[in-house]
């Protein structure tokens, strides 16, 4: 059976893709952000996962408002990164793992999660930037695991509750651990932390709330299920609702985790950037 090694969270700001392309790792603006990643690289080097479950939220590339799945799972042989409107160069396709995708879908629907399955899915910065951060040169990194994208809706309310996100993660973890292959799996939760792009409150960042989230997601994620969705919008900002991806990731790890590394920096672009690596306790 497969093993879940752990989970990694990171913000997925589009500007990061640009900074990577320009190799701004030592630039004074970017250094405090990129300094959060060497420990993650070392951990990945040590464990070499075979599969990566990339939990992200689509930002209007893969899905539009005509059909907006609350939870969508990719089941494709590969995932293409397409133009999101800014004319940035697209990367090569990311290899998929359709057998694992369908195993997850079967298991989760049996566990009463109603999934939208996607045999074609264009992936945006929410999926791609974390891959580039964790596997430099992605997808052309020799250690690049096969990917399963999972996207949750944070574009349009009603969005899932924090409790539902955590439960989704628990069901996902169960699905992964029952995959009949001796494989190692890592789970990404991308997006956040606090930020708001729109309206007169644009630029809003909330360090105190982010710290509360960072503390609790490690050892007491159930505490965070008390936060209502409107409270999440109010305290994390309209786009800070992406924290739901972190909750989904966390649910899949099980109760006991060890924190390997953590980074938090304000601001990158309009965002409070957070990175966390949690290893499943053996």
């Amino acid at each position: 059976m497969a093993t879940v090694l752990g989970g990694i969270t990171t913000s997925h700001i589009p500007a990061v893709g640009n900074a990577i392309q320009k190799e701004l790792y030592d630039d004074p603006y970017w250094k405090p952000f990129f300094d959060g990643y060497p420990k993650v690289h070392a951990w990945i080097q040590e464990h070499k996962p075979d599969y990566v479950i990339n939990i992200y939220n689509d930002h209007g590339l893969g899905f539009f408002l005509d059909r907006m799945p609350t939870f969508a799972i990719g089941a494709a042989h590969e995932y293409k990164n397409e133009d999101e409107g800014w004319g940035l160069p697209s990367l090569d396709p990311f290899p998929g793992a359709p057998e694992l995708s369908w195993h997850i879908i079967e298991s989760m629907v049996a566990d009463h999660f109603d999934i939208t399955s996607c045999q074609e899915l264009a992936v945006d910065h929410g999926f791609v930037v974390p891959m580039q951060l964790f596997w430099p040169g992605a997808p052309n990194n020799p250690d690049m695991p096969k990917a399963v994208p999972i996207s949750a809706n944070t574009v349009q309310h009603p969005i899932p509750t924090l409790a539902r996100a955590l439960d989704f993660g628990k069901a996902l973890g169960k699905a992964l651990r029952s995959f009949p292959e001796d494989a190692k799996i890592v789970i990404l939760g991308t997006g956040g932390l606090s930020h708001q792009l729109d309206g007169a409150r644009a630029g809003f960042i909330n360090k105190d709330f982010d710290q509360y989230c960072l503390e609790n997601i490690v050892s007491n994620p159930e505490e965070l299920t008390k936060v209502t969705r409107m409270e999440l919008v109010e305290k994390a900002g309209a786009q800070g609702t992406e924290f739901l991806m972190w909750m989904m990731m966390r649910g899949a790890l099980g109760d006991e985790v060890n924190e390997i590394t953590r980074n938090y920096h304000i601001p990158i672009s309009n965002t409070a950037a957070g990175t966390l690596l949690l290893e499943c306790a053996a």
Binding site: L65, G199, F204, R229, M230, V233, A238
Partner: peptide, 17 residues
């Protein structure tokens, strides 16, 4: 829980969509 007033923030719900 979803229509509290958050100044400077529009909740993009079904109505807005």
């Amino acid at each position: 829980d979803y229509h509290i007033d958050i100044p400077g923030t529009t909740i993009f719900d079904g109505k807005m969509a």
